[in-house]
């Protein structure tokens, strides 16, 4: 029997009222300093009143709170696993580096909440090489990454291996999901990753074989055509993308990588917006979670910009599209 999400969707639609709007973010970008920005956020209900008012405390609390809400409403823990996979692979990266290169950072700064597995389990599996503690695809990646880092000591290569495995698993899980919104999330995320590789390669003129090896094959984007375009240059990438469902990203290709990242985030939020009118499926939960992550990312950018005394105009230009 199909799981009913009427209660969850109705509750989430009310919670959407507390999401930050574009006006809120602009007001935040115009705050005098970090302290004033944190105060503004605190007035909007951000952060834990019992904790010290710092950017790190506030952002961590909000990330955990978003997952708490969704975990509370999610009836089938596997239903939103597509959104959690990224956290698992991030935590795997952190665990492998912690074990093989050592890190003085506390666990709460290394690991992210919201994965399908507790970060402690991933760390234990890597420390003890007990791969049976992990699900099959993650275990295989963990073993390969551990061996690679132990033998080469190349963190970048290790990251690249884990990132590709993550995208592959995300694409497979997303396409297998019955939820259209999760399918779209997986497609947009993987396409953005492939285009990102193409853009970087277009600048550095990497060999075609390297490009094809780095990209994730997917139905919605011909990676061979994209790799060939990247080999020719950025204009050829733009020309190819015009013929794909990702043409909305083309205007951002002429700018910086930051502009491209903003464009990818905006495209994802644009795909999520129809969920505001959906009252019966898991879609609103997934969209809410992505919207929360998007706004947390945006607030993090603003607070970092404030700490580094970036001009308000620069901060405003980098603001993402909001869900509400």
């Amino acid at each position: 029997m199909k799981t009913d999400y009427t209660y969850a969707a109705a509750r989430i639609h009310v919670k959407e009222l507390s999401l930050l709007t574009r006006a809120d973010l602009e007001q935040l970008a115009g705050a005098a300093d970090v302290r004033a920005a944190l105060q503004l956020l605190s007035e909007k209900g951000w952060g834990d009143p019992e904790q010290e008012l710092t950017a790190e405390n506030m952002l961590r609390h909000e990330a955990e709170a978003a997952w708490e809400v969704v975990n509370d409403l999610e009836k089938d823990p596997a239903a939103l696993s597509v959104l959690k996979l990224g956290k698992d692979y991030h935590n795997l990266k952190a665990a492998v580096k912690q074990v093989y290169t050592g890190s003085s950072l506390p666990a709460e700064r290394l690991f992210q909440p919201g994965g399908t597995l507790d970060a402690g389990v991933i760390l234990k599996a890597v420390e003890e090489k007990d791969w049976e503690l992990l699900p099959a695809p993650l275990a295989q990646t963990a073993e390969e990454a551990s061996v690679l880092l132990a033998h080469t000591g190349d963190g970048q290569l290790c990251d690249s291996l884990i990132d590709k495995a993550c995208l592959g698993e995300l694409y497979r899980a997303g396409k297998a999901s019955p939820e259209e919104v999760l399918q779209e999330y997986a497609v947009v995320t993987c396409a953005a990753a492939n285009i990102r590789i193409a853009l970087r390669a277009a600048r550095s003129r990497r060999p075609l074989s390297f490009l094809l090896d780095s990209m994730l094959p997917m139905e919605e984007l011909d990676t061979k055509a994209l790799a060939e375009a990247a080999y020719e240059g950025k204009d050829a990438v733009a020309e190819y993308l015009e013929t794909t469902p990702f043409a909305a990203l083309v205007p951002s290709l002429s700018g910086s990588m930051a502009a491209f990242e903003k464009s990818c985030d905006d495209l994802l939020i644009e795909h999520m917006k129809p969920q505001k009118n959906n009252s019966f499926t898991l879609g609103p939960l997934a969209a809410y979670l992505l919207a929360r992550e998007n706004e947390i990312k945006c607030v993090r950018m603003i607070l970092t910009g404030k700490q580094n005394h970036l001009p308000d105009e620069v901060l405003r230009e980098s603001l993402r599209m909001t869900y509400v």
């Binding site: 009913d4 009427t6 209660y7 969850a8 969707a9 109705a10 509750r11 989430i12 639609h13 919670k15």
Partner: peptide, 14 residues
């Protein structure tokens, strides 16, 4: 019943 579930969702928050 459908209305009741949606109403419960709204009433949890408001």
């Amino acid at each position: 019943s459908q209305g009741g579930r949606a109403a419960a969702g709204v009433l949890t928050e408001k």
